[in-house]
Design a protein around this nucleic acid. Structure first.
Length: 595
RNA sequence: GGUCCGGUAGCUCAGGGGAUAGAGCAACAGCCUUCUAAGCUGUGGGUCAUUGGUUCGAUUCCAAUCCGGAUCACCA
């Protein structure tokens, strides 16, 4: 309807005033709440050309549009705004159509958009295999998963992939510390998750190293020399060389410890409720980039420095020179990503590759895209960095060495525990079975956490206060879950047998507001997909729930004045519930039938 | 220093050329013999960092300045 208003307005204005507006240049808003109407056409831009008063122009356009669009009931002009009210018939029809079965064509069209025939790959998570997941990964995973689901709902085929940073000096650190201090402990023998066990040794390495460095400095060595000569640093470099040479003992240790980590990660993924079509590992792909280095050299896009390192000059593009292969012939980070991108394109041939990676790597992805473009790669233009802001604590940035990292498993456990406490306090689960209750606490805890993080624009950095950030009231996941459960309760009381046909009835203000909001669902999905922004959807869902609760407080559904109105309200409530459920699902949040 | 991102209520965040700038939390005042009060209604709270510019109209766009962050490795 907004599009229709734009198109018709452009035609009318052009005919009336001899202008040349396109539909895109016409502004159509939702009517502000203090005025009567559903949609508003802004006519300020025409004043100058038409050389008439806004009121006159408004009347001319209003009359003409009313002739053109049969759904328009009435309009009013306030200053430079023409507010259009649509006919009850239009809203009734909308409600009926979208209330059809999920399988029906109309409902399917409403809840998921037509296919774009595009395949989009989304990379997210991307953890290192030397420590457990933390709050930063949580934001990454929530965003990556939700963006994937939104893209699907917007008609795209989506491939979710993960990348494991599973090799390198940092991985060797936890391995070496384990070898030295591990006493053959296993996750089983210690009774902790594998990723946590490995993470403990990563910390242990750093602690022991500090002691060694301090000792050497006490003996008069400079800090720089002490770092270089500390036995642990020397040994860890040796270990990396052994790993690269395929040393069987080192590889076996690596396999074992990474295996523990993967098991631990899987457990966390399940808890979070995310999934992947494929996991890539850097140990499999870090050598692939070398072919690309060759290719770049032969195309004269790269050049060899006197010392043998391969480099590309990006100064003309406002960046710097970038080394792509070390003088000793080994790859750097960017080289691996070049190789991985190539491999992924061979695997899936996606039209777009979206990388969910924090904004501290903006520069890296600029380089990646530029280099692939200069190489003339087919997939180059489809490379898209979904650059999200870092999560800060009230005390500032999270730092693993200072122990200020919020662990993902701990945080989730804490969330569920809090959800349980609050629910018990309200006595909401008195007639729940134990299993049902546990499921509810989980859904509420995760819902609160996910919603808290996803309601913020991904691009912005956000502050997370573990003690205060999580609430179950107001603009939160549980508020929406509660609204959904309320509706389900009413539907149960109505016997779930309300009729899917309803006579034309006049809608009151709160019903009207809700209908208009619901009507916008497909538009919001489209926008969220285009902007890769779950926050748009989260905000939208919140307003739906808020509007419903106002409606619910002002009107009785079961005791409505007539059967027709009761039926209408049940349909309206049901559609609200379905929008809430589908929308929340796209954020990765489940909604309970009772709470 | 170069480049990029941000600065909106006490706090956490929406709004990104249009009407009197919005939510939640916190504070205060009301609403449960009636469909779930994790709810609803209301009150107070703002120099939209600053200064210029573009425009019929700027919190929104542009420039400069100030403040905060990121980045500019033969680290990942």
């Amino acid at each position: 309807m907004e599009q229709l208003l734009k198109e018709k307005t452009a035609i009318i204005v052009n005919k009336l005033y001899g202008t040349n507006f396109t539909a895109q240049e016409i502004t159509v808003n939702q009517t502000a709440k203090e005025f009567t109407g559903d949609f508003t056409v802004v006519i300020f831009p025409f004043i100058k050309i038409a050389k008439k008063k806004p009121e006159e122009i408004g009347k001319e356009i209003g009359d003409a549009l009313q002739m053109e669009i049969s759904e328009i009931d009435s309009y009013n002009v306030v200053k430079g705004f023409v507010n259009f009210k649509l006919k009850n018939e239009f809203w009734n029809n909308f409600l009926l159509k979208s209330s059809a079965d999920d399988n029906s064509q109309e409902a399917a069209h409403f809840f998921s958009l037509p296919s774009t025939h595009k395949k989009i790959m989304v990379e997210y998570a991307g953890p290192n295999t030397n420590k457990p997941l933390h709050l930063g990964h949580i934001r990454n995973i929530f965003i990556g998963y939700s963006v994937s689901e939104i893209l699907k709902a917007a008609g795209n085929e989506v491939v979710k992939v993960n990348i494991y940073n599973d090799r390198g000096i940092h991985i060797c650190k936890s391995m070496l510390a384990y070898q030295k201090f591990g006493n053959n402990d296993t996750p089983k023998s210690k009774g902790i998750k594998g990723d946590h066990l490995v993470g403990d040794y990563y910390v242990k390495f750093d602690q022991e190293l500090k002691i060694q460095i301090a000792g050497l400095m006490l003996n008069g060595m400079s800090e720089e020399d002490a770092k270089k000569n500390a036995p642990l640093n020397v040994e860890v470099k040796e270990m990396l060389l052994k790993w690269e040479a395929g040393d069987t003992t080192v590889r076996a240790l690596w396999e074992m410890m990474n295996g523990w980590v993967y098991e631990g990660f899987e457990e966390t993924y399940q808890l979070i409720g995310c999934d992947f079509n494929k996991h890539y590992k850097e140990s499999d792909t870090y050598l692939l980039g070398k072919n690309i280095v060759e290719e770049g050299l032969s195309k004269n896009v790269f050049y060899k420095r006197p010392d043998g390192a391969v480099s590309i000059d990006l100064t003309a593009d406002g960046l710097d020179e970038k080394v792509l292969m070390r003088s000793d012939g080994t790859s750097v980070y960017i080289t691996q990503d070049l190789g991985t991108a190539d491999l992924r394109y061979q695997d899936f041939e996606p039209d777009q590759m979206i990388y969910t990676v924090a904004n501290e790597q903006d520069y890296h992805f600029k380089v990646l895209k530029l280099v692939t473009q200069k190489l003339g790669k087919k997939y180059a233009d489809g490379i898209n960095h979904l650059s999200y802001g870092m999560v800060d604590l009230p005390t500032g940035k999270m730092k693993s060495r200072e122990g200020t990292v919020v662990d993902a498993d701990d945080l989730i456990e804490e969330m569920i525990r809090t959800a349980k406490e609050q629910t018990l306090e309200l006595g909401k689960t008195e007639n729940f079975s134990a299993g049902e209750a546990e499921k509810l606490y989980y859904e509420l805890g995760m819902g609160a956490l996910k919603f808290f993080i996803l309601k913020v624009d991904p691009r912005k950095r956000m502050i997370f206060n573990p003690k205060e950030s999580i609430d179950f009231h107001g603009f939160t996941g549980p508020f929406i879950q509660y609204t959904y459960a309320r509706i389900q309760s009413v539907k149960r009381k109505a016997g779930n047998s309300f009729k899917n046909t309803t006579p034309q009835i006049a809608v009151n203000e709160s019903e009207q507001k809700l209908l208009l909001q619901l009507y916008l669902y497909p538009t919001i999905i489209k926008e969220a997909a285009a902007n890769l922004d779950p926050a748009l959807l989260a905000n939208y869902i919140y307003f739906i729930a808020k509007n419903f609760n106002s409606f619910y407080a002002e009107n009785s559904i079961m005791q409505a004045e007539t059967e027709n109105i009761k039926n209408f309200r049940l349909l309206l409530s049901d559609l609200t519930a379905r929008v809430l459920k589908k929308g929340m699902k796209l954020l990765g949040i489940e909604v309970p039938e009772r709470m």
